[in-house]
Amino acid sequence: MKALVPIKRVADFNARIRVRPDGTGVDLANIKMSANPFDEIALEQAVRLREAGGVSEVIAVSIGSAQCRDVLRSALALGADRAILIRSDLTLEALAIAKLLATLVRAEGIGLAILGKQAIDDDAGQTGQMLAALLGWPQATFASSVELQGASAKVTREVDGGLQTIEVNLPAVITADLRLNTPRFVGLPAIMKAKQKPIEERDAESCGVSLGARLCVLRTEEPPTRKAGVMVKTVADLVDKLRLEAGVL
C-alpha cells in the first residue's frame, strides 16, 4: 500500500511573525521557513508504518512555489521514498489543495493519506477532511496512535476531554496530532543523500481542478492586547469577583 503525506512549507514554529503595519498580511520576509510540524509527525508515522511493513512506499508532496523543494528535501531525508512538487505560485486554499491531492491520490493509487491535523500558519485544519470527503473515504482526525490491521486501521483520536478509538476501512485519511510520535532526528548523511534524489514536478494548473480562491482576506490585524485588570485585596474579594463578575466559577 502506498502512503501519501502532504507537506506544507510554513513560517518556522520559532519564528516571530509580525502583522504588516498596513494590514495587508503577515510579514514573512527573510524569516525561517520549515515543514509544518504536524506534517512532519504525519511523515514520521508513514515512515514507521513502512518500516513495520504495512506501507510499501511513502510519497511526500508539497504544493506551492519552487521554494517548497526545501521541505521536500527534508522529507526525503526523514525517509520519504519519493517527493513530488505540485507547482503553483497562487495562494491556494485548503479546498484547492484537497482537490489537487485527490487527483494525485487517484493517479498514484494511494491507499493511505496521512496529513497534519492543521498547518500552523493559517490554522484552518481542513485539508485532510476535505480530501477524505472528495475521495469518499473515511477519516480519522487528530490521531494519537495508528495501527494497521489488514484492510482497516485502528486509530486513537484526541477528542475534547478524552480519547476515542475508531476503526476505519482502508483506503482512508488520517490526520496527525501532536502526540502521535516525535519525528526522528535527521542526520547530515541523510540530508546529503536527499540532495541527490530527484523531485518530480508537475504544474497545478494542468491538474484539471479549479484553484480559484473563495475567501478574500480583507485585512490582517494584530490581536487585541490584554489590559491589566483590577487588584483585589483579599481571597474573599477574589472569589466574589470570579463568581459574580467573571462568572467562571
Binding site: D123, R214, V217, R219, E221, P223
Partner: peptide, 14 residues
C-alpha cells in the same frame, strides 16, 4: 485567528 492567535484575519467569503 491565524498563527496561533498572533494575528487576526478578516475574511470575506465569495
Amino acid at each position: 485567528p491565524i498563527y496561533a492567535g498572533n494575528a487576526i484575519q478578516i475574511v470575506q467569503s465569495s
